[in-house]
Structure formats: C-alpha cells, structure tokens
Amino acid sequence: MSDRPASPLGTFDSVQRALDAAEMLAAPTADALKNWAASDSAEAALFVDTDPEKADTAVFCETYGVPLEASANCVIVAAKRGGETTLAACVALAHTRIDVNRAVRKHLGARKASFAPTETAVEETGMEYGGVTPLGLPPEWPLLIDEEAVRAPYVLVGSGRRRGKLILPGSALARLPGAEAVPGLAG
C-alpha cells in the first residue's frame, strides 16, 4: 500500500503533499504554504507534477481530465483611482469569467480596472506566467475570490510555476491571508 495521497480529481502520475514538494513550487508559494496560519489547509494541499507545455487551462484540463468547474484561475488586476494603482488578485473557476469592468472595479472602489500587464504580474508576484496562484501573493494585495470557487469541494490552482499545480479544498481559498469571498465576482 502506498502512503502517497490520491488526487480527488483528474488523472496524474505524480501526487504528493504540497508541503513535501517545496522545491517544485515558486518560492513565494512554498513560503506561504509553510507559514499558513490555517495549518490544516496547508496539510490538505496536494501538488501534482504536470507538463509545463500543457499549463494553459483548456489544454491542461483536457490532458489531465480535470473539469473546468474544478480548475481555478488566478489573475492579477490593476485598479486605478486618482492617479493611484492598486494591484489585486482575483480567483474564479475556469468555466467562468471574472467581471473586471464591473464587479472588481466596484469592489475595489476604482475608476478603472484591467488585467495587469504580464510583466507586472510576474515581477510583482515572483511567479511564472501561467502559474500564478493565490498562495504567496504580496500580503497587502486584496485577494478577491468568487464564492463559487470557495463552495467547490476541491479546486486546482497554480503552483507559482507552469510546471505543476496545487489541489486544495475550495473552502481553503477563503482562509488565505487577505482573502475575501465576493458574490458575483465572475459569471
């Protein structure tokens, strides 16, 4: 009998506790897991090793048999008001779209909101494009999570790198530092 955990979704050759896979994660992600105050959530997180060439959501889900309803995307948004720009992260299930122009803009009290440029997202998070995850973001950033993602039994999110993903209970997303579940963030 193997003491390796089983993935609750998808088909992966390699599944292990995320805390045991720190070397496979982006440094901010590994640090966030190790220091997460919700230690039971950190313990529940799994790491699945995957092909970085298949990291884009649709290809990934098809390749590994993960329903779009169980895959969550984390995007970085730049919200502007009065010459000030605030970066925020938004998380929603892959079969939905984050409502940046209305829900995010209104929630952040911004005059204008748009997806942050790729270079900004990569530089500010310390993560790879295509692997950005809500675990390990700058603590001062708002972390807006669509309620549907929080209600999902399990969600698959990035690991901070294009290679590999994390699987954790949807409810754990709401326990991340600075996280706020927002109704209607995505549709």
Rank of each mutant, 00 (worst) to 15 (best):
T86D: 00
G126F: 01
M1A: 14
S2N: 10
R162H: 10
L166Y: 10
L144Y: 00
Y154D: 09
G126Q: 05
T96G: 01
V15G: 07
K112W: 00
A72L: 05
R105V: 02
I76C: 05
D56V: 15
R102H: 11
F115A: 06
A186I: 06
A113T: 03
E53L: 14
G170Y: 06
K54D: 11
Y154F: 12
T29Q: 12
P5W: 10
A78I: 01
A94M: 03
A113S: 11
E84H: 09
L33R: 15
R97A: 09
T85H: 01
A18V: 14
A89K: 03
H107Q: 07
I145Q: 01
D13V: 11
F12A: 12
G160A: 11
A6W: 04
E124I: 02
L166H: 12
A116D: 04
H95P: 02
E84W: 01
C90F: 02
H107D: 03
A186Y: 04
K34A: 15
T50H: 10
P138M: 05
D20A: 15
V66T: 07
P117V: 04
R162G: 09
R111T: 13
C74V: 05
D3T: 13
R161G: 09
F12T: 12
A27H: 14
E148H: 06
E53V: 08
L144N: 00
D3K: 10
L137E: 05
G131V: 01
R17H: 15
S114I: 01
V155C: 07
V104H: 04
L166T: 12
L143Y: 03
E124G: 00
Q16G: 15
A21T: 12
G109M: 06
E119A: 08
A37G: 15
P28R: 13
T57V: 15
A174E: 10
V132T: 03
T86E: 07
I98G: 02
K54M: 14
I76F: 04
P142M: 00
H107A: 05
L19F: 13
P169E: 10
E43V: 13
Y154V: 07
E147T: 11
H107W: 04
L168K: 10
V59L: 15
S159T: 12
G82H: 02
V75W: 00
R175T: 06
E140L: 03
K165P: 13
A6H: 11
G184V: 02
V100Y: 01
S2Y: 01
A45M: 14
P153W: 01
R163M: 11
G126W: 00
D49M: 13
L135S: 06
E128W: 00
A22R: 15
E123M: 07
W36P: 11
V104A: 02
V59C: 10
G131P: 00
Y154W: 12
L143G: 03
L156Y: 03
L143K: 07
L9S: 07
V15S: 08
R102E: 06
G10L: 10
R97N: 07
R161H: 13
F12Y: 13
N73T: 06
G10F: 09
E148G: 04
R151E: 08
E140R: 12
T125C: 01
N35R: 15
G160F: 05
V100I: 15
G83Y: 05
S41E: 14
A38I: 11
P8V: 09
E43N: 13
G126D: 05
G187S: 14
S2F: 07
E43K: 14
L25I: 13
D146P: 03
